[in-house]
Simulated scan of single mutants.
Amino acid sequence: MIFDVNDFEKEVIDRSKTIPVVVDFWAAWCGPCRMLSPLLEELAVEAQGKWDLAKVNVDEQEAVAVAYGVSGIPDVRIFIDGEEKDRFIGLQPKAAIKSWLEKNLNQKALKIKWKTALDLFEQGKFHEALVAFEKEKEKPENPQEFLIYAKFLLLSDPQKALAVLQPEMESEDPFSYEAIKCLGTLLLGEEIEKLGETDEKKRFVEGLEAIKKLDIEKGLFHWISLLHINKNIGEGLVLKAVRSLFRYLGPRHPLSLKYSRAFSTAVNV
């Protein structure tokens, strides 16, 4: 079902307790919105009733947009069991959206392994998450689980994390795959020569060192601070790194929510 939202609480929150609801926050004046909406509608039709697509015009539903912190559009979110589970912002290719949907619709199954570690990761307790991951000693059995496996390995052994990645895993979750690949490469000291011998490179490396010590917030802060100076530093390397870190954390992670506005300001000024 595809419908325009009039009562968000009833039509999205309550309805999502019965069937997953994907919400498309859009506006008529937004070019990327007009390109994204048909892709979402195609996927909704192809889903054959597995989930509903709810469309929210932010100009007509301004109070809802403000209440849910919509700061940039298109903004797409999925609600399951009365709660927002995930989101993405901006125009995405159909294949990436399809993978994002599949990941979230299968979320409960994905979290069977390393559940304690995943919960701690989502709380921003990275050291505790890594300890829990190493204690559980579960072995991945499919591409989705290998991605989660690589996600935790990145915190302790980026070289091994990159070795775990296989091309067939990319279709499972392109965002996570590319984020792990990018961050793993940076943590191994590759590509940073693009920054030259500059103060910016020194600050970028300080961010890398903080991430290696599991102080993800410090690393994210350092990198976003660089974007406020120049968003094109290092041929776009810093911008790519920050986007990868956000995708690695996930859109609902406390750090993503805390720093999304600062990031948006840095890249849109």
Rank of each mutant, 00 (worst) to 15 (best):
I2L: 11
I2S: 14
F3V: 14
D7R: 14
K10E: 12
V12Y: 06
I13D: 13
I13A: 11
D14Q: 15
I19Y: 09
I19G: 10
V23H: 05
V23C: 04
D24R: 04
W26S: 10
A27Q: 06
A27F: 07
W29T: 14
W29I: 07
G31H: 10
G31W: 05
M35V: 14
L36C: 09
S37Q: 13
P38V: 10
L39I: 15
L39F: 12
L39K: 14
E41V: 11
E42D: 13
L43Q: 04
L43Y: 02
A44F: 01
Q48W: 04
D52Y: 09
L53N: 06
Y68A: 08
V70E: 00
V70Y: 08
G72F: 08
I73H: 12
V76L: 07
R77C: 08
I80R: 05
D81M: 03
E84D: 07
K85N: 15
I89F: 03
I89L: 07
P93E: 09
K94H: 11
K94P: 10
A96P: 05
I97R: 01
K98H: 13
L101H: 12
L105R: 08
N106H: 09
K108H: 01
K108A: 13
A109Q: 12
L110P: 02
K111M: 10
K111T: 15
I112V: 15
K113N: 05
W114D: 00
K115H: 12
T116G: 11
A117N: 05
Q123Y: 09
G124N: 03
K125F: 02
E128Y: 04
V131K: 11
A132F: 01
E138K: 14
Q144S: 15
Q144T: 13
F146Q: 15
I148R: 06
A150S: 01
F152K: 00
F152D: 01
L153D: 01
L153G: 02
S156C: 06
D157M: 13
Q159C: 03
Q159S: 11
A163G: 10
D173K: 05
P174E: 09
Y177A: 05
T185K: 00
L186K: 04
L187N: 01
L187K: 03
G189A: 01
I192R: 10
K194I: 09
D199N: 06
D199R: 08
K201T: 03
K201C: 02
K213C: 06
K213E: 08
L214R: 15
D215T: 09
D215H: 14
D215P: 11
I216M: 14
G219L: 03
S225E: 08
L226V: 01
L226H: 01
H228I: 10
H228V: 13
N230F: 03
L239R: 06
K240T: 12
V242R: 13
V242K: 06
F246L: 06
R247I: 08
Y248E: 05
R252W: 07
H253G: 13
P254K: 06
P254A: 05
P254G: 10
L257F: 07
L257P: 14
T265W: 07
A266T: 02
V269G: 08
